[in-house]
């Protein structure tokens, strides 16, 4: 990376950090009341338990567990690992989010095929949850209350941030939508659904810290990867690939903007 590029990336980062606004309530009104009825209960606790079981389950042709999977803090270290993602992994020479890394470990450690791992990672309507959702829920729980601190030291981590920002503003498709169409202004909503302004620290922090989340309306835990895939569906884009450079880049952009805020996932959403 050239010196001028480093400077311009630094300028972009500073600008992103400066773009902060007043505190933001993600969802208002009836959903708040409904959610309040749950009190401290979150059905995600059952999914979290399942996730732990999946981590220690022998699976795949190698009949191995995920126990030696390195999520960035060393083989098998799960405490605090989620909050430090996405980050650069030397063994694959790329930046990965939690789903990309789990996908990698399932193939490397357990000998599972990409086809099997990529088949149906997110619940469809009526499903009871997937292995990926459960593992992500458990790993997020292991980072609860810890500050969001994605990697930004390696060149590829900074490139991921820059790509993520460019994708965030990229307008395409028959409706000309980008992420910024809905998530680039303060105090906006689609119908009654409040939209976090993801260009501000506060908005990004609310959004990033709360995923994965148990979606009351769908009865399953949804991950940040799913959230992005479903946003692109509504943008009239094709299917976003789990663990792809695009989704990793967007999550890096979001996590860097949210950096410092405490993780609060699995959350509870409408």
């Amino acid at each position: 990376m050239s010196g001028s590029k480093i400077i311009s990336v630094a300028a972009c980062l500073v600008a992103a950090v400066m773009l902060t606004g007043p505190a933001y309530a993600e969802e208002a009104g009836i959903f708040d009341e409904y959610r309040a009825m749950f009190g401290d209960d979150n059905p995600a606790i059952f999914v979290i338990e399942e996730g732990e079981e999946f981590w220690f389950a022998s699976q795949g042709p190698k009949q191995a567990t995920l126990e030696s999977c390195d999520l960035g803090l060393g083989p098998g270290v799960v405490d605090g690992a989620y909050a430090r993602l996405p980050r650069y992994f030397k063994d694959v020479d790329r930046v990965m989010d939690v789903e990309a890394r789990l996908r990698f470990c399932m193939q490397e450690l357990q000998g599972r095929t990409p086809e099997e791992v990529d088949d149906h990672p997110y619940s469809l309507r009526g499903d009871l949850g997937t292995e990926m959702e459960a593992l992500v829920a458990w790993l997020a729980e292991k980072s609860r209350d810890l500050p969001i601190a994605p990697g930004q030291e390696h060149d590829k981590e900074r490139e991921a941030y820059a790509l993520g920002e460019a994708v965030f503003y990229y307008r395409a498709g028959p409706h000309d939508f980008s992420c910024a169409t809905c998530h680039g202004q303060e105090g906006m909503r689609i119908r009654l659904q409040a939209l976090p302004d993801l260009t501000t620290h506060e908005g990004a922090a609310v959004a990033y810290s709360g995923w994965p989340a148990y979606r009351i309306s769908e009865g399953v835990v949804r991950t940040m990867g799913w959230r992005m895939r479903d946003c692109f569906r509504q943008q009239r884009f094709p299917l976003l690939d789990m663990g792809s450079d695009v989704t990793v880049a967007l999550q890096t952009y979001l996590a860097v903007t949210a950096a410092g805020a405490p993780m609060a996932a699995p959350g509870l959403k409408r």
Binding site: L163, Y170, L240, V246
Partner: peptide, 13 residues
């Protein structure tokens, strides 16, 4: 770079 990242990151459906 943007174009290749996007084309690799999405699938027709």
């Amino acid at each position: 770079d943007m174009s290749s990242a996007l084309n690799a990151g999405f699938k027709s459906i």
